[in-house]
Design a protein around this nucleic acid. Structure first.
Lengths: 238, 238
DNA sequence: CCGCGGCGTCACAATGCTGTCGCGAGTTTG
DNA sequence: CAAACTCGCGACAGCATTGTGACGCCGCGG
């Protein structure tokens, strides 16, 4: 949490870029976020969004899946490709519920996603969650902790050169851990960070996935990098 | 619903009292601070805030200028008047920009003051600043006393570079001590601070945990940093 | 329609923490 | 000097937390 604070002790408000083709929703969100003290810039057009993002790099992008001009997913990709915007958090909005959309959305680098219809409050909460998460690992850069390397682009994890076989959840969990090595996360924080803010999951489920992750990354003669902190949570470290 | 997913009451977390009459903002802030690891209690009502503050003295109060019931400024005054809450830092929120309001706010004893609209991030930053000033360890900063260092983020304690193996209670006890080096705490104070105000524990139990902590941090050629003050309590010092 | 892989929950086992006791060595009180 | 206190210490039964294997569900791909 402290890494977040020291990141940019800016006095000005956090800058939000809002991309949404529904005029009514756009205006509503713009109003609400402005009311919350955010510095909001809004547009219904994907192309224009790219321009705005280039002109003034936002702290967070809220992006509709389907927008005029360049599609949301394409905007997402391009933002990730540009060095200056590569690590800017993105929250995707989508009307679709198809699972592969979610996967693709997260794949292209979105940090979170919300299915319409959603309550503004929920969106605000997720914005809060994302803002809180400044990732030391810039999207697209492989992260290395100890003898484990994670390549977010290739979606691949290797240990000592050998590729590890991880399930989707295990991958996200590991990635979340590796972005903040050594830091202890409570089960609740893990649930928020890995499963998403709105999920209603048993706390103990985290334990099970920790175990699965441990099993997936275990190697002979290698120490378990996941440290259990009794009555506090788990931490990942070399 | 989210409350159900709370980890068990963290005695070690900083306690925040949030008083804000706008439900949306209240919820947003509550959520964000909870995710920062704070132990948050929130209410839209000034009178209720007084009760909550009296029941369980918070480490910091975030107070809206205008709230239901007793006004924010009045709450502020009363908190200052009560001995138990007199020194608790207060951050005021207000929509007004009039200079005299600000003066009055600081006059009544608020430590800091933010004008709406503000970015949550800015508020978090200020809270962080205040917490660092009051209780560094609760703000996520490593604390060092003598040759012992405690890192609250990693949940780790080292002495002369070597990592110490502490149980949950030992950790909390040590952390509590290290926040106020040299100060003597009675068993009752330790019980309140480490176990929580409501706990119904034998006083002698503290002795046992002191012993366990001593054993856990002992090293050859190193002085025991815990000083027994006969018929008074214990103190931690270099 | 069926099999498969992944996921969330459970129940149970395995640790290892915890709060109390009791005893004994010092210390203070009278 | 004995009684009264205070504190260190080892033991322990109970309990809280975590590890683990199994099970059923669900969406996807034959």
């Amino acid at each position: 949490m402290d890494k977040l604070r020291q990141d940019k002790p800016r006095v000005t408000a956090a800058k939000l870029l809002l991309v949404e083709d529904d005029p009514a929703l756009l205006e509503l969100l713009e109003y609400r976020f402005q009311n919350e003290g955010y510095d909001v810039r809004a547009t219904p057009d994907g192309d224009e969004a790219m321009v705005m993002a280039a002109e003034d790099v936002p702290d967070l992008v809220i992006l509709d899946w389907m927008v005029d001009g360049t599609s949301g997913i394409e905007v997402c990709r391009r933002l990730r490709r540009d060095k200056t915007t590569a690590h800017v958090p993105i929250i995707m909005l989508t009307a679709r519920e198809a699972e592969d959309d979610r996967i693709r959305g997260l794949d292209t680098g979105a940090d979170d996603y919300i299915t319409k219809p959603f309550s503004p409050r929920e969106l605000m909460a997720r914005v809060g969650a994302v803002m809180r998460r400044i990732r030391p690992a810039l999207a697209g850069e492989t992260v290395e902790v100890g003898d484990i390397a994670l390549d977010p682009v290739a979606h691949k994890v290797t240990r000592r050169g050998k590729t590890l076989q991880l399930g989707p959840t295990e991958y996200r969990l590991l990635k979340f851990f590796m972005e903040s090595p050594g830091r202890v996360f409570s089960r609740t924080q893990l649930l928020d960070g890995v499963w998403g803010t709105g999920s209603d999951i048993e706390l103990r489920t985290v334990d099970v996935h920790i175990r699965r992750l441990r099993k997936a990354i275990e190697m002979p003669n290698a120490k378990d990098p996941i440290r259990t902190v009794r009555s506090a949570g788990y931490a990942f470290e070399a």
